[in-house]
Each structure stands twice: as C-alpha cells, then as structure tokens.
C-alpha cells in the first residue's frame, strides 16, 4: 500500500491568515513511511497552525494535503481521525473527571451487541475497559492498575501515556504529537520518548513537534524546520548538529542547498 519513496502525508502551499497575521505562508510538509519527522521552529513560526491543519482542527485558506497520494480535506478533527490521522495535543485533550477507558474511547465509544446497543445505545463498558487494559499493557511502560481510574488521579506522564495509547490504538496512518514531553520530568520524558520509538517501530510514521532539541535529536529521523510560516529546511538528523539546526531555526544561518 505504501512505497518507501511516496510520502504518507504531504502538504503543499498551505496558507492560513488571521486578519493581518499570516500564520502559514505557503508551507510544505512531507512525512515518509515509517519515519519520525520532527517539526521545530521558533515561536510564531507556524508549527501549531501547520499541525492543526494536518489534524483537521484548522481549515487552511489555501493549499493541498494528500494522504497516501490522495487529496484530502479535513473540515474537523473527526475527518482527520476517520482518515487514520491521530493527534496527541499538548493539552492532551482528555476529560480529567472521566476514567481511563472512557477517555481512550472518547468520541468513538463501543456499544453493546444486539438491541441494547443498536436501539438503546448502551455502552459496552467491560469491553472498553478490557481493551484499554490491553492497549496500556501493549505500550508496556506504565504502572496503571485500573482502567476505571479517573484520569485526574494520574501523574503527568501517565496522562500522556493515556493520550498516546489512544492515538496508537486508533491511528492507522499517521500519529502527530504536539510537545509530548513539555510538561514532564526527566524519567517521564524518557518513557514517552520510548513510547514514540515504539509506535514508529510498529510501522506508524510519527510527526513530533518539540522545543526540546535533545529530545528531537534523540528520536527524529528527519527534522523539518519551520520559519516565518514556511518550511525553511529538511535536515537528516545524522548529518546536522544541534547548533546548526537552532541557527537555521532562528535565522542566524541559511540552510545549505541540499537541505532545502
């Protein structure tokens, strides 16, 4: 279904204006199969707008998005999800007072079989809890004991794990993670980075937005540098130093031709 040379997700010439402010000035993006693509950029470079356009939370004024070579247009996050693109937002997009299983299945709950589910629309809570249990175990990092536990009783890293588990469980094409380690301590960051690698190793390409250069250089295969609403450069992690990446990002250095 995918060939190694065709991008899974591709954006061309995305434009988004808010009044006089231009958030996206015709930006491109290419996500190749099985890679972790880090998107870095200074504040106001258009990272968030780019990610929101790809995840359906924002409708660009112009430009095209293709998934597996087919043109798509997302009017809402639901459209993007239906196409197999799952996003882990920085705000995590969890309902703190609901339990882990309810959060995992939020917006796509499972109903009971037969008339109880189809007519009376009753949820299959047991099945959802078992599946939640299985997903969290599958990610193999967290010590969550009870999927019936409220999310607000979890630590930051555990909440992140719930959000990542939700994306990994339902994402079939692409997973987008927005600043997944921003609010975490060293040990929890480590666990989430392992989680990202784990997801990639299972074959799902990942777009990782992060401010944290050491984390980016630790897990990314390629680095997309966003600057002033455009893609400034794509770098191969193996061929670039952290200081050069930061220099390009801040405009202190121009990328070499091969990086454009």
């Amino acid at each position: 279904m995918t060939s190694p040379d065709i991008p899974v997700l591709q954006a061309r010439g995305l434009i988004k204006r808010y009044g006089n402010v231009i958030a996206l000035a015709g930006t491109d993006l290419d996500l190749m199969p099985g890679e972790i693509l880090a998107v870095i950029g200074d504040n106001g470079a258009g990272k968030s707008s780019l990610i929101k356009a790809l995840s359906g939370a924002l409708v660009p004024d112009d430009g095209t998005i293709t998934l597996d070579g087919k043109r798509v247009s997302f009017g809402s996050p639901i459209d993007a999800r239906d196409s197999g693109i799952e996003t882990v937002y920085q705000s995590l997009a969890v309902a703190p007072s609901l339990d882990i299983a309810s959060n995992l299945f939020l917006g796509r709950e499972r109903r009971r079989k037969g008339i109880l589910g189809s007519v009376f629309r009753i949820l299959d809570r047991d099945a959802m809890r078992q599946e939640a249990r299985r997903q969290l175990d599958g990610l193999g990092i967290m010590t969550i004991q009870n999927p019936g536990q409220a999310v607000e009783t979890l630590s930051g890293g555990q909440r992140q794990a719930v959000a990542v588990a939700r994306a990994a469980a339902f994402g079939s094409r692409v997973i987008i993670m927005d600043e997944p380690t921003a609010a975490l301590g060293v040990r929890e960051s480590r666990a989430v980075l392992d989680l990202i690698l784990h997801v990639r190793d299972q074959g799902l390409p990942v777009i990782l937005i992060s401010h944290n250069m050491p984390h980016v250089f630790e897990v990314a295969d390629r680095i997309h540098i966003q600057r002033l609403g455009r893609r400034k450069a794509i770098l191969d992690r193996a061929n670039v130093s952290m200081s050069d990446a930061v220099a390009i990002m801040t405009g202190a250095m121009e990328p070499q031709d091969g990086d454009r």
Binding site: T143, S155, L184, G185, V186, N212, M242
Partner: peptide, 18 residues
C-alpha cells in the same frame, strides 16, 4: 552544542499508584 531551547526539570518521576 551551544543552545538548547528548553531545560529539563529534574523530578522525582512518576508517583506510584495504588
């Protein structure tokens, strides 16, 4: 390696549940 854009805050790690 001159610049990093964020600092790692050391923490006690995840508290155990239960």
């Amino acid at each position: 390696m001159s610049t990093t854009l964020s600092t790692n805050r050391p923490s006690g790690g995840a508290p155990s549940e239960g």
